[in-house]
Design a protein around this nucleic acid. Structure first.
Lengths: 153, 153
DNA sequence: CAATCCTGTAACTTATGTTGTTGCGTGGTC
DNA sequence: GACCACGCAACAACATAAGTTACAGGATTG
């Protein structure tokens, strides 16, 4: 499998929607994400079910934000897309008879559990507003900010 | 992709090899792991390159442990199999032009980096001897230990 | 009401990476 | 020399995310 990019894509589009006037169609969003309108609808369905975004049909329809970016964490979005697997590795089979394998699986599962806890905790600690603020900073440093250009001195 | 089970499998087989008299053939090992001899040779090649195991050809050939389980950490084995990807998700593209996407990727990468650091640190903290000891404990509690069987009372 | 727009969803194809399999070469042992 | 076991290449099978096509259904506009 290729690496799952749904989380990143949803974060990306949510920030765009926050800066977007009115509703954005799947096609517009797909263009932002360099993907397909159907993929957009498929993935955003989870966000809609959670009430983070709204979708409207017909003329003037499309997708719009239904909450504040400050109220959305990366974890919320991860949950909304269905909590896909976090790790690329794991045990060989589900309920091994071999006691050695059981011990191995327990050791690996313990490590994974700790990493998962940290991962989820970190995802919960970052809001979409934080990311948007970082974006604003990057935006500013392109023009306004005096960023140690070689002009100095 | 299916979840990568190479790490677990190698841990599993290394402990078996530690308890195994003499060399074990790929076929024997494949039977332990419920897989194929070629898969075993393919995956164990990395362990051999690192000197953790030895392989011999011809009569009486096969695989044998070349170090102590106490000197092997889960991280060593992870490295030996080629450090496959740890996480199942990541950014949508490598060098995005969109500043929003850059900000999103940076936020996700930061979280992933922290989780990776913890994961590698935890993998490094567990030796194969630790896992083998856990196995011994499971072994013991099947027979010797008075484990609240209904015989009690 | 009819035309148009956009979502909702199913079905299928593509892409990528692990795993499984076959075949054969090579070296080591008896 | 016969046999055994690894080494390796090449290919098939499988799982999952992503891309694509097709069409039904609801909403807006005139």
């Amino acid at each position: 499998m290729r690496r799952d990019s749904r989380l990143s894509r949803m974060l990306h589009v949510l920030i765009h929607m926050d800066r977007h006037q009115g509703a954005a169609t799947s096609e517009t969003i797909a263009a932002m994400l360099n993907t397909n309108p159907v993929v957009v609808r498929r993935t955003m369905a989870g966000l809609r079910d959670r009430g983070y975004v709204r979708s409207g049909k017909g003329h003037g329809g499309g997708w719009s934000l239904a909450c504040s970016l400050a109220d959305l964490t990366l974890l919320d979005v991860y949950r909304a897309i269905g909590e896909p697997p976090l790790f690329a590795f794991g045990p060989a089979c589900d309920r091994p008879e071999c006691l050695v394998e059981q011990a191995v699986d327990a050791a690996v599962a313990d490590v994974l559990k700790q990493a998962e806890n940290l991962l989820l905790e970190r995802l919960a600690s970052v809001t979409l507003a934080d990311v948007a603020a970082d974006f604003d900073g990057r935006m500013g440093s392109l023009t306004g900010h005096s960023c140690q250009s070689r002009k100095a001195g």
